[in-house]
Design a protein around this nucleic acid. Structure first.
Lengths: 144, 144
DNA sequence: CGAAAAAAGATTGAGTGCAATTTAATTGTC
DNA sequence: GACAATTAAATTGCACTCAATCTTTTTTCG
């Protein structure tokens, strides 16, 4: 009993690594006036503009309770527009403004800085990434 | 440009795996009326009772802005006591109550359930854990 | 000794995450 | 067509995280 410490637990390793990531991102993203989740949303929109809140939520693994206020803040900052879908009034589509699209260029630097901070070769990073995704999906399948 | 998706990014893999962990923990810990960070604090106290807020913060990688209200909730729930250190009045020591100590027995089941949900053999889990810790410490060294 | 610096917690405010509920629109079924 | 069930967002309330600031106590050093 009580012989193991936090660092022995893989859940804590992931928990503390996640905080380390957002802490490392914070100063880089502050230059763009973005938080990390906001940055993730923009990455999704840069790839496919005009997605619904539901579609964004599925990719982020977040629900509308988190996304609605976050998207409103992105809208208030002038990066996106939130528009009811005419064909299905339940749906809200999120589209980039010019300034939202323009952020993609500056974001390249963020990506580069973080790549350096992570400091793994491509193969290692790829293997670690796949293992995390597998672990995540296994945990999600247990809950769902 | 805009050809990569979230799942290609190791930061997002860690981010979403962390959420999957806390989601998997939630129903298990709800039976003990604990949140995941509260559970982590108790693990630290079960190992070494009476630690200072600062000591807990160093192990959790959290500061007093997060810990103070969290510890007050644990105190309100009757699991810990917060006492000013007589030798150094700046310090607050956190010690377990009887009910706080008693939770350790029930927590064994949580540990077992999560071990099953993670579903990796000991070697794989150990390797993954070490890689996460290394990644975390590298990220923290960049910020600090 | 006495003032400056450092250290430990507490506080405030903003953003995130989630459960639970609500509202409005669409779909399914009789 | 009407009514129940489902779906998409929004809302509310609580907990966590962090930056910035403040208070109190201790340490350092002239």
């Amino acid at each position: 009993m009580s012989t193991f410490c936090l660092d022995d637990m893989i859940c804590f390793a992931v928990y503390s690594a996640e905080h380390a990531f957002t802490r490392a991102y914070r100063p880089l993203l502050k230059a763009l006036d973005l938080t990390y989740p906001q940055y993730l949303i923009l990455i999704l929109l840069w790839k496919t503009d005009g997605q619904s809140v539901k579609a964004l939520g599925e990719q982020m693994h977040l629900d509308s309770g988190t996304l609605t206020p976050l998207l409103k803040r992105l809208e208030a900052a002038g990066h996106v527009r939130r528009v009811r879908n005419a064909a299905d009034e339940r749906v809200v589509n999120i589209s980039l403004t010019e300034t939202g699209r323009a952020l993609q260029v500056k974001a390249q630097e963020v990506l580069a800085s973080m790549g350096a901070a992570i400091g793994l070769c491509d193969e290692e990073r790829e293997e670690l990434r796949l293992q995390m995704i597998e672990l995540r999906d296994r945990l999600n399948s247990v809950v769902a």
